[in-house]
Amino acid sequence: MAALSIRLPVELERKLMEEVTRTGQPRSQFIREALETLLAQRQRERLDAQLRDAVTALASDPQARQEALELADDFLPAENEALEGHWWR
């Protein structure tokens, strides 16, 4: 494992120590998990932004929009059939 040295504001370090004391978790483990969580969240946000951009581009293209509507119409009978007889209907 690589070692990393960081400087924290006093208040942030105090909150960190409160949390690791409360949970009994080693400080380095807590920081690793927090960093993994933040990095995963940022990756999801980037992917969401890319998806929004792609949807916006497709929605603004009349031909792509028409193709999507036609595909949805093609699948509608199969979707309705799959829903028949289930408890929520």
Rank of each mutant, 00 (worst) to 15 (best):
A49Q: 05
A34I: 04
A72P: 03
E13M: 14
M1A: 13
A72I: 04
L58G: 10
L47D: 13
M17P: 02
W87I: 13
E19S: 03
A72D: 07
T23Q: 12
E11I: 08
R46V: 12
L38H: 15
L38V: 15
L76G: 05
L58C: 08
R7S: 15
M17L: 14
L83N: 12
E19I: 02
K15V: 07
T37A: 15
R46M: 12
R32E: 04
A64K: 02
L16I: 01
R89M: 10
S5V: 05
M1P: 05
L16V: 01
K15S: 03
D74T: 10
L71G: 11
W87G: 12
R52Y: 04
D73C: 02
R52C: 03
L8C: 00
A64T: 00
M17I: 08
V10M: 06
R46Y: 03
L76Q: 15
L71H: 04
T23F: 09
A3R: 15
D53P: 02
D61I: 04
F30D: 00
A72L: 05
L69N: 12
R32M: 00
L4K: 13
V55S: 03
R89A: 10
M1H: 09
R89D: 14
I6F: 06
R42K: 15
Q50A: 01
L39K: 10
Q29P: 00
E11T: 14
R42S: 09
Q25A: 06
V55I: 15
R27I: 09
E81F: 07
E79W: 11
L83I: 11
E67V: 11
Q43P: 04
L47T: 13
V20L: 01
Q25S: 08
A59Q: 14
E81Y: 10
L4F: 13
G85A: 04
T56V: 08
F75W: 14
R32I: 02
D53F: 06
S5F: 05
E67R: 14
E36V: 04
L4E: 11
T23S: 15
E84M: 12
E19Y: 03
I6W: 04
L12Y: 01
R14V: 09
D74M: 11
W88V: 09
V10P: 09
E19V: 06
S28M: 00
E79F: 10
L47E: 15
P26G: 11
L39G: 06
D73H: 01
A78T: 12
F30E: 00
Q66D: 14
E13N: 14
A49D: 07
T56Y: 03
A3Q: 11
